[in-house]
């Protein structure tokens, strides 16, 4: 079986701060990590690899040259290899252009090495939180897509049995092979990198593909290929009537319940 996992390098959101004069991210000094949900997707792929000998796991990412690090990280944890999509032309891509571009790379991987049985994504990335790129890539590849998958097993020759999370429980689905899944945290924490994996990752250099290799429609990539535009960025409105109560617990509680009653919340 052949599995592709799309991963993204994101700033560690626990350590991010904002420059309040420019409303831009202070990127300097903020560690870059693999998007946490993409780690869960990678773990799902590695579980399938454990259960199905001969399976290969290929990671795909798009970003500036340092994003090669997330591929090396994935290799350390057990992925077989990966590819970095990189080039100035891809900069400023929104979710539509990103979905188009990454799908091109997956197609090229398939031309070179045969079709993927499964393409996995984290349910969303913690920097944008859109949850749009996975379904977008799936559509570009013509694959059926299930979102919020927590487990995936091979069911017979041509199908997967997938459990997905919903608002109030789970659903079990059967989906034809090949297919695409977006993966939730419940799929499991990424296993620890083995010593052998770390050694392999140390010397591994992923191929880097740009417009030369992918031959995209220039109108569909980067800022130019992005239907959405950011027209304004501003600080979130500060709640003006914030109140901090003082006094005994009973006094504070009474004050709170009075306010909540005025807002018809109790």
């Amino acid at each position: 079986m052949k599995i592709a996992v799309c991963i993204k390098q994101v700033p560690d959101s626990d350590k991010v701060t904002i420059d309040r004069t420019t409303n831009r991210l202070n990127r300097a000094g903020v560690p870059a990590i693999v998007n946490p949900f993409d780690e869960n997707a990678l773990e799902m792929a590695l579980k399938l690899k454990d259960a199905n000998p001969g399976t290969t796991v290929t990671v795909v990412t798009m970003g500036p040259p340092p994003a090669a690090e997330v591929i090396k990280t994935a290799v350390a944890h057990g992925a077989d290899g990966g590819v970095l999509i990189c080039g100035r032309e891809f900069g400023g891509a929104d979710t539509w252009a990103t979905g188009y571009t990454i799908a091109l790379a997956i197609r090229k991987l398939q031309e070179d090495g045969g079709p993927f049985d499964l393409v996995l994504f984290g349910k969303q990335a913690t920097d944008g939180d859109t949850a749009q790129v996975g379904p977008g890539i799936a559509n570009n590849l013509g694959l059926p897509c299930l979102t919020y998958a927590k487990s995936c097993e091979v069911a017979g020759g041509d199908a997967f049995r997938v459990v997905r999370m919903t608002e109030d429980g789970t659903e079990e689905w059967e989906v034809q092979r090949p297919c695409a899944l977006t993966v939730v945290k419940e799929a499991g924490e990424l296993r620890i990198a083995s010593l052998r994996g770390k050694m392999k990752a140390k010397s591994y250099q992923p191929p880097v593909w740009g417009v030369e290799e992918l031959q995209p429609n220039p109108d569909f990539i980067g800022l130019k290929g992005s239907p959405t535009r950011v027209s304004k960025v501003f600080a979130p409105p500060v709640k003006s009537n914030r109140e901090k109560f003082s006094g005994t617990p009973a006094e504070q509680a009474a004050a709170l319940v009075e306010r909540l009653a005025a807002r018809q919340l109790v």
Binding site: D94, G128, Q132, P135, G136, N139, T147, T228
Partner: peptide, 20 residues
């Protein structure tokens, strides 16, 4: 969970912008 499957799929097909 339904809308977040439908909307990105539809936007991808329609080649239009989608804001989450």
């Amino acid at each position: 969970t339904v809308g977040r499957s439908l909307a990105p799929t539809a936007a991808s097909i329609l080649h239009c912008g989608l804001t989450a």
